[in-house]
Design a protein around this nucleic acid. Structure first.
Lengths: 220, 220
DNA sequence: TAGTCTGCTGAACATGCGTTCAGTCGAACC
DNA sequence: GGTTCGACTGAACGCATGTTCAGCAGACTA
């Protein structure tokens, strides 16, 4: 009888919600290695209470994942319309102060490889497929031979680059996701746009050759 | 007086080298959280000896980093010529059996964000700049307004995507880097080639607008 | 008032970690 | 042979962690 209750809509009164929020924040800022004691202290609570409400640290994380997933779904329902290029998604996502811990948590999750990360990526890829379809229909985007593969590739490379950049030199303030994304785009937006509008290779040779050899489809 | 000696050229006789190699392998396969005891057991040695040779676990890792960096420089000196597109680099790198732990270690290092990762990325970006220059000169590659930024972007997004893919669903055999890269390219090579030769956006509008607003050059 | 139940505490436990250290072994030197 | 020195062992230390548990306080019910 300890499933996720619909408590704490707006006020973070209950200790349970306080613990959950503290955990999300700590996990986002310093990773999942954060100790239960630290989270408890943040929430102004004893370590024992954490185990009382969630059965274990993994239980805590599971509930955080679940809560974040619900939050993300809600945010996405609000932000139905996104520019065709799809990159401003980050800007919008990170700019809202409320969302900062959410994105931070998701990025940590990606570094860690949990199920939340898989789910989140799947959502983003689905979205990207949708935007690509609209973009192609509107004539704004070049069609692909495999829209799903392209959407996945674009999503993974964008997120992967951002993640890698963050890991290589971590931001001074891990909470300022907007600043992080801004810093990332400051150096990456130009080459990205160049690549998207002018391409990289001058000849079709490599692509055509690959397409010829393609029928030997090997596995998934 | 405990700097890196030029010992153990070919034979892994000395316990010191055995520990180092075991550490590299464990670090590559299961990350830097591996315990000293496990590494010692792999090398058929007591935990104490690890501390005797390297002063601490960090000392061990530092020496691994240094050793890997030297190895990478050597490998690169051998592989001077790489295709213009630059992606086959992984294939070549990963295909050599000898290099598998090297790439694995480097990838782990990137997940972790150590100085080795920074150095390695810097090398790759430098290389990419060189290849791009050659490619542009030969007319095979579209020139960029900022070759350094493009090289960095392409490197980070390729590596980031590979890393993210690996984190999201880890390979059954983390040692089989060639298989991992093959699996990655199986789904990503087509969209990558499409993007490189046909682009993504049909209109120059977004790029041109960005270029107009650019003169407020912020940073490098 | 007595009983009970729930949120909650904080000391204690068990475990695994990096690290230390007293001491053994064997070879090299005088 | 005696001495010294470096490689090496393995038990032990100190610490941080996740987790447990006996018990407390206060608000309900009867």
């Amino acid at each position: 009888m300890r499933s996720v209750e619909p408590e704490a809509q707006a006020a973070d009164r209950t200790a349970r919600a306080r613990i959950r929020d503290a955990a999300i924040d700590r996990f986002a800022v310093e990773g999942f290695g954060t100790s239960v004691r630290t989270i408890a202290a943040d929430a102004g609570v004893s370590p024992g209470l954490v185990m009382h409400h969630f059965r274990s640290k993994d239980g805590l994380r599971a509930e955080c994942d679940q809560y974040l997933l619900a939050t993300i779904r809600r945010l996405k329902r609000e932000n139905v319309r996104i520019a065709a290029a799809g990159q401003t998604f980050f800007q919008r996502f990170a700019s809202a102060e409320e969302n900062a811990p959410v994105l931070g948590y998701v990025l940590r999750s990606m570094q860690d490889g949990g199920p939340l990360a898989r789910e989140f990526i799947a959502h983003m890829v689905d979205d990207a497929v949708g935007y690509a379809r609209e973009g192609v229909a509107a004539g704004a985007l070049v069609p692909s031979r495999d829209e799903a593969a392209r959407a996945r590739y674009l999503t993974l490379s964008s997120l992967g680059a951002l993640l890698l950049e963050m890991t290589l030199d971590p931001p001074s303030d891990p909470r300022d996701l907007a600043g992080i994304v801004r810093r990332y785009l400051a150096t990456s937006y130009l080459p990205m746009l160049e690549l998207f509008t002018e391409g990289y290779l001058t000849s079709r040779r490599v692509l055509d050759e690959y397409l010829l050899h393609l029928p030997d489809t090997e596995g998934s």
